[in-house]
Structure formats: C-alpha cells, structure tokens
Amino acid sequence: MEQEIHIAGIVVYTQPAQLESIKSCIAEVPYAEVHAQDAHGKLVVTLETEGTKRTLDTMDAIRALPGVLDTVLVYQHAEPASALAQEIL
C-alpha cells in the first residue's frame, strides 16, 4: 500500500500574551507551519503528516501547550505521496 500524505489546516486559539512562545513551540514541530496570526491570539497553521492519527496527535500536542485554549481542524486532504511528485500542467 502506498504511503499517503495528509495536509491539515488548523486554527489555534491562544492567550494573546503567550502567542509568540506558542508560535516558537509550533515552529519546532516537524512539518508544521504558522501562516497567519492576529492580535487576539489566533494562529492559522498547516500540518503535513502521514495519517489522520498523526494529525490528531499533533493537534493534541499543540492543544496541551501552556497558553493554548483550543485547536480546531478546518481542512484536511489526503493523497498518495507519489501524487505530490507529479508535474502540474
């Protein structure tokens, strides 16, 4: 069975005073990237994982960080890893 790649978009709700430290922690997570933030403590993050379980485990780890109020899955897409290597015409 071919390996799948799962791409998830999540919103991380934080206490505004801890936004920068949470961003630093998320930056340490492999294949996690913060794309946007606002002054109220919201972060838009993407995760690339090898499966749904790993996505949920990563979300739980982020949710457990001090100052994180919640994480919400907004989008998830899965496809075979080989599809990412195909040229788009």
Rank of each mutant, 00 (worst) to 15 (best):
E2S: 11
E2P: 15
E4M: 05
E4T: 05
E4A: 05
E4Y: 04
I5H: 01
I7Q: 00
I7L: 06
A8T: 03
G9C: 00
I10Q: 06
V11W: 01
V11K: 01
T14S: 14
T14N: 09
Q15V: 15
P16G: 08
A17G: 13
A17N: 12
A17M: 07
L19G: 05
L19D: 07
L19V: 09
E20L: 10
K23M: 09
S24V: 01
C25L: 05
I26P: 02
E28N: 10
E28Q: 12
V29R: 04
V29F: 08
Y31D: 10
Y31K: 11
A32E: 03
A32F: 04
V34E: 00
D38G: 01
A39H: 10
A39V: 08
H40V: 09
K42E: 03
K42G: 01
K42P: 00
V44Y: 02
V44S: 13
V45I: 14
V45S: 05
E50Y: 12
T52K: 14
K53C: 09
R54N: 15
T55M: 11
L56K: 11
L56Q: 13
L56E: 10
D60H: 13
A61Y: 09
A61G: 13
I62N: 02
I62S: 01
I62G: 01
A64G: 03
L65K: 08
P66T: 12
P66Q: 07
G67H: 06
V68Q: 12
L69G: 07
L69V: 14
T71K: 05
T71W: 12
T71Q: 07
V72R: 14
V74P: 01
V74W: 00
V74R: 03
Y75D: 08
Y75W: 02
Y75I: 05
Q76N: 14
H77M: 11
E79S: 04
E79N: 03
P80Y: 14
P80N: 05
P80V: 10
A81F: 11
A81D: 13
S82H: 11
S82K: 10
A83S: 12
A83D: 09
A83P: 01
A83E: 12
A85W: 01
E87H: 05
I88A: 03
I88V: 11
L89G: 11
